[in-house]
């Protein structure tokens, strides 16, 4: 499994070199965007690229001809996504810190939660969709995210307060914990669905 996770790093050597400039670009040219968005982009960067690469060539045939089981291929994808998310967010955090861009741990946590939800929806889709459409779907998804993120964040902020007010009986910790539980729960369900789809996939 380690080999399958490491494979994404080998494939994306150039993209990884572009990673830090991308974060710096976001910091410099989009000063007022939420750090949550930066963390989300950073966290999803490697996994999203990995799917694009795997969709471009018939790499499913390669991976499935090597001594790997289908189960292992999907498992590596889900575990790898978490590993890369943590590493990338830590790196983005370090870059933000160096550029004196203020953020707190909660931004990271919310971004991680959003990533889990985003990945939970996107990953199974990637296994269903034909490789040719993946790029298009990614592109539309990214645009939708870029357009919808700010209003959604504002809406969430407003409603988060309402919700917090509403559940004053619950502590904030409790609230965030349940948010985390939902995000991780969705990710786990998505994992099971992807296993189911990939087992039956025809190459």
């Amino acid at each position: 499994m380690f080999n399958l996770i490491k494979k994404d790093l080998i494939i994306q050597k150039t993209q990884i070199i572009l990673f830090i400039p991308l974060i710096i670009f976001l910091i410099l040219f989009a000063r007022d965007i939420s750090p949550i968005f930066i963390f989300l982009v950073a966290g999803a960067y490697i996994s999203a690229n990995a799917y694009v690469y795997d969709g471009m060539v018939e790499s499913n045939i390669l991976l499935n001809s090597l001594p790997y089981t289908r189960k292992l291929i999907v498992t590596s994808r889900y575990i790898g996504a978490m590993v890369y998310m943590v590493l990338s967010m830590a790196m983005a955090g370090a870059v933000l810190y160096l550029f004196d861009y203020s953020y707190d741990m909660m931004d990271m946590a919310i971004a991680a939660g959003l990533f889990f939800i985003f990945a939970a929806i996107a990953f199974p889709l990637f296994y269903i969709l034909k490789p040719a459409y993946i790029g298009v779907v990614m592109f539309i998804g990214m645009i939708a995210l870029a357009i919808g993120f700010q209003p959604a964040a504002r809406f969430l902020e407003r409603n988060l307060i309402t919700i917090t007010d509403f559940i004053t009986s619950l502590s904030t910790t409790m609230l965030y914990l349940s948010g985390a539980a939902i995000a991780i729960g969705l990710y786990l369900i998505s994992w099971i669905i992807s296993q189911f789809i990939y087992q039956r996939k025809v190459f």
Partner: peptide, 15 residues
């Protein structure tokens, strides 16, 4: 699969 070597008619490697 550990004991099989494979060659396909089209490129399957990351190009």
């Amino acid at each position: 699969k550990d004991r099989i070597g494979f060659v396909y008619d089209s490129n399957i490697f990351y190009e």
